[in-house]
Design a protein around this nucleic acid. Sequence first.
DNA 1: CCAGAGGCTGAATCCTACA
DNA 2: TTGTAGGATTCAGCCTCTG
Lengths: 365, 365
Amino acid sequence: MKTKTKTGAATTLPLNQIVAGDCIEVMNSLPEGSVDLIFADPPYNLQLRGDLHRPDNSRVDAVDDHWDQFSSFAAYDKFTRDWLKAARRLLKPDGAIWVIGSYHNIFRVGSALQDAGYWILNDVVWRKANPMPNFRGKRFTNAHETMIWASKGEGAKYTFNYEALKALNEGIQMRSDWVLPICNGGERLKNENGDKAHPTQKPESLLHRVLVGSTNPGDVVLDPFFGTGTTGAVAKMLGRDFIGIEREAAYRKVAAERISRVRPFEKSALEVTQSKRAEPRVPFGQLVERGMLRPGEMLMNARGQSAKVRADGTLIGDDIKGSIHQVGAHLEGAPSCNGWTYWHFKREGKVVPIDVLRQQIRSEM
Amino acid sequence: MKTKTKTGAATTLPLNQIVAGDCIEVMNSLPEGSVDLIFADPPYNLQLRGDLHRPDNSRVDAVDDHWDQFSSFAAYDKFTRDWLKAARRLLKPDGAIWVIGSYHNIFRVGSALQDAGYWILNDVVWRKANPMPNFRGKRFTNAHETMIWASKGEGAKYTFNYEALKALNEGIQMRSDWVLPICNGGERLKNENGDKAHPTQKPESLLHRVLVGSTNPGDVVLDPFFGTGTTGAVAKMLGRDFIGIEREAAYRKVAAERISRVRPFEKSALEVTQSKRAEPRVPFGQLVERGMLRPGEMLMNARGQSAKVRADGTLIGDDIKGSIHQVGAHLEGAPSCNGWTYWHFKREGKVVPIDVLRQQIRSEM
DNA sequence: CCAGAGGCTGAATCCTACA
DNA sequence: TTGTAGGATTCAGCCTCTG
C-alpha cells in the first residue's frame, strides 16, 4: 500500500508487521489518514503511585504533596495527549479508536480524547467473568475494565456493524457491558521460564467483538502498544490487516511467533449479517414504470385508509399528495413513515405489502 | 451538632434538612471537616442535538433542562473543580465521596477528582437491568453508568463495610459491577400532572448499597445535587443523617414530602434481589468469540446435514442463513428449533452437541 | 379474580445519499 | 456546502384494559 503525503512521512504502510520503536515517533512516520481503526491498551503504571519520579528523574518524597501529585499526573497527561494526537493524524476521516484502561488512567485518557477533538461514541465496560478477588477486603473486587470508543470528531462517520453484533448476541442489540472471561489457560502466553509473557494480555474474545463490530475485512488496524499482539492475532484471523508498534524486543518476539501460528478464518465465514441500509435504493416509481402497480390503483394502510397511485410514482389521498412516505406520515400524524411497509395492495383477494414488490426488483438486480 | 471553624463559616450543620441555594456557596458556609460521606449526582452535560423518536414514532422525553446546559468543556470543568474543592473541604479526614456520571462527563469528573487530591478507591459500574435501547442502531445500548468512589487523599482512611456488602451479595465478595434496575414504577416520583418529577431520579437500591457499604449509622451524608432526594430518603431509612442542597424549589418540595413519608429502618425488602437467573442466557456468538468454535467450522444435525459457522455467530446453510435456531427450524420445516441440542460439532473424532460448550461457559460465570 | 394483550417509557451526545 | 427527502430503527418492566 502506497500513499503520498506532503509531510515527507513514509509513504508505505508496514502492513502485518510489528514495528520496533516509540509509538509516537513511529506513528508520525506513517502517512496521514491511512488507518481505519486504532486499538490501544496504553500503560497506566507511569509513576502514579509508590516511588514517584519527576520527568527529570528526581525523586518525589511527599506522597500527599499536591504539587508533586499533580506533576506526575501532568507527565502522564502529556504522554497521553502526545500519542492521541499522533494517532488522530493517522486515522482516516471515517476511522475510529478504542482505548482500554482502568480507573488509574481511564479518566485522564477520556478527558484527553475529548480535548483532542475525538467524539466519544460509547464507553464499554468489559465485565470480567473471573476476576482476581480483592484479598484484603478493603475495596470492591476490581471486576471490570473500561473501553472508550470514539470517532475522529463530532459528526464524523464510523463503521458499526450493528446487525453482526446483534447476531453475536442472539438477536438482541449489543449493550455497553460485555461479559467475557480474562485471558488465561492455553491462550495465555508464557515465556521460557513458564511465567506469563505479558502482565496484561487481553483476551482474543474482546478483540473479536471490537473488530467484528467496528471494522470490515481488509481494513487496516493499528495497535500502538502491541504487547504480545492480541490485536494482530485476531486481525489476522478475521482478515484484517494490522500494524503493531512495540518498544520491547521480548514482546515483539513473542507476538511475532504467536501471529505466525494463526490460521486465518476462511473468507466466506467472515461475511457478516448485513444491515438493510446496505441494500440498494429502489424508487417507488419503478413499480409503476415496470407495471407492477397501475396508475389509478388504490393502496391501503392497516386502518383501511387508501390512496391512489399516480403515474409519476406519487400517491394522492383525500387531502394530500406526495411520496408513499409523505402521505403515510401525514395520515399517521407522525414525523416520518416507511411507506414500503405501511402501504398494501390487493392481488387475487390477498392484501400484500408493497415491500414485496421492492424485494422482487432487488432480487433481479 | 456544633463545630468551631476558623473561617467564620456557620457552626451548625443543617442535619436532615434540604438547604436552598447554589451547592458551592452552601458548602462553603458549612464547617470544615464535618461530613462523613458525599454522594453527588452532578449534571451530565449531555449536549443533545435534535429530537429522537422510537421506531414506533413516539418521541423520547429528553433531558433538556437548563441545569444541564454548559457552553463548553472548559465551563463544565470549572464548575466541576469548584464544587469538588468545596466538597473536599467539608469532608472529615476519613470521609469519602461518590460521584455518578456517564461517558459525557465522568472522565472530566474523574480527572478533576484526581487533580483535586482525592484518591480513587474504585470505579463502580451500575449495569442497568432495563436500559433504554439505542433506537437508530448506530451505537451500543447505553446500558450502564459509572460511579467513582474516592477517599480524601492517598493513604486516607475510609469506611468500607466489607462483611455487610458480602452478605448483601449472598456471601460472595461484592464486585465493582452492580446490576440494578432503573428507577420506575411506584418508586418514580410524579408531579401533579402525572409527569415525572425529575428527569434523572436514581433508584433507592443504588443508594442503599452505597450507604450500607461506605457509612455507619449516625454518619452525616451530604448530597450537593439533591434533586428529589433519593440520598436523603435512603439515609433516613438506614439511620444516617443527611444534608441536601438543591437550587430548584420544585425539587425541594417533592423531596421534602417524600422524605417525610419515609419510615426509618425497615431494613428488609429494600435491596432489590439480584435476579440470579438459574440459567443465564448465553449467546451462541460467544462460542465463536471465545474460540470454542472457529468461523468456517461445520456443524451437523442428526441427519448428517451441515451448516457453516460465521464470524458473527450466525450459520449459513445451503439456502439459508441465520441463528442456530433459525437454520435448524428451516431444515426441519418446523416453526421453531432449539439449536443448542440440534447442532453438533466434531472434536477428536467424536460428535458433541454444542450445548456442552454452553454449559462450560455457564460454569465459568 | 386471573391471564394475556397492548401501551407507555427510560441521563440519548442515535441517518445519509443525493441533488 | 447545504438542503431535501427516503426510509430504517427497540428492550425490559410496569401499568391498564379486556375477556
